[in-house]
Design a protein around this nucleic acid. Structure first.
Length: 289
DNA sequence: AACCAGGGAGCGT
DNA sequence: ACGCTCCATGGT
């Protein structure tokens, strides 16, 4: 076991790992355990920082610093949010929430599988997928620790094998994406250097990937600050909070998002999403738990 | 037991 | 540009 401590202010692991951007972390003994690429790691909150434990010595920790985005200036980001009541309430409810920088392929598959699924179910599907196709990585506690399966591995899978992971009608979408990447017909590495609109157009060429899922990948994996996923929760929230509950056409909604939420609108979106989903920001219609 | 879930695509009007 | 339907599966 090898441990280090990062000094970083106001980093809330609980909110960060529970807000619906990542699906493989699990809480255990007061810490968070997960797999980043081929690294198993256990994280714990410390006074003004985070401790990280791995199962083997680390020559450097950049893979973790980058994933956690430890260098990000959260105060500066939050300061750009709109100074309206919903956003103030969201910031208060989600104090210390950070956006991660996740693997693009993993993020793409996770959100393809997210379509009309509850977050608990998405977690189960991804778990099944990793158990079935992921390479084992050394871990702690005897728990099953596997890397997220590569697209090359999934390209070799059959649709029925993927359906066995309970991803239903999303199975052919995952399979086609894996094969397209494995063949070289699409390169996820290239997307990082594209303007937002072109990056979105590229991802939505994949079957089963529309604007919402594309923006999740662009926000959670590539860090496009103005990628703004609009799901049912966000749509309801925006219409209720800013349009008196009236339904708004997509183009109009996008124009509002562009002008209202500032240069870190995607970040603001995640605060709003989590605040609404946890009930900290109440809406009239929903009936969530 | 219905209803709905961090959607998307293909249809018809 | 809309509205509808289907797509699997399971939580509430």
């Amino acid at each position: 076991m090898n441990t280090t401590v990062f000094s970083v202010p106001n980093y809330n692991l609980d909110v960060t790992f529970s807000c619906g951007q990542a699906f493989r972390w699990h809480c255990r003994d007061g810490g968070w355990e997960g797999v980043i690429d081929n690294h198993w790691v256990r994280l714990e909150s410390r006074k003004d920082g985070i401790s990280a434990a791995t199962d083997r010595p680390q020559t450097n920790w950049r893979w973790l610093e980058d994933y956690l985005q430890l260098h990000a200036d959260l105060d500066a980001i939050v300061a750009t949010f709109p100074q309206d009541e919903p956003m103030r309430a969201s910031v208060q409810a989600c104090n210390g929430m950070r956006l991660l920088r996740q693997n693009p392929w993993e993020t793409l598959v996770c959100f393809i599988c997210s379509a009309t699924k509850q977050i608990v179910q998405i977690r189960q599907i991804i778990h099944n997928l990793c158990q079935q196709f992921g390479e084992p990585v050394a871990g702690s506690g005897g728990g099953a620790c596997r890397a997220f399966p590569t697209f090359s591995r999934l390209a070799l899978a059959g649709e029925e094998e993927l359906r066995a992971c309970k991803m239903g009608f999303r199975a052919p979408h995952v399979l086609a994406a894996a094969r397209k990447l494995d063949s070289g017909a699409m390169d996820l590495g290239r997307i990082a250097s594209l303007p937002l609109d072109e990056a979105r157009d590229c991802l939505t060429q994949l079957n089963g990937v529309g604007p919402k899922i594309a923006d999740c990948v662009l926000l959670f994996a590539y860090g496009f600050p103005k990628a703004f996923p609009v799901d049912v929760w966000i749509r309801r929230a925006l219409e209720h909070l800013y349009f008196r509950g009236r339904s708004v056409r997509p183009e109009r909604l996008n124009r509002f998002i562009e002008t209202h939420f500032g240069p870190w609108s995607g970040y603001a979106q995640q605060y709003l999403f989590h605040a609404v989903r946890t009930g900290a920001l109440p809406l009239p219609k929903p009936k969530h738990a």
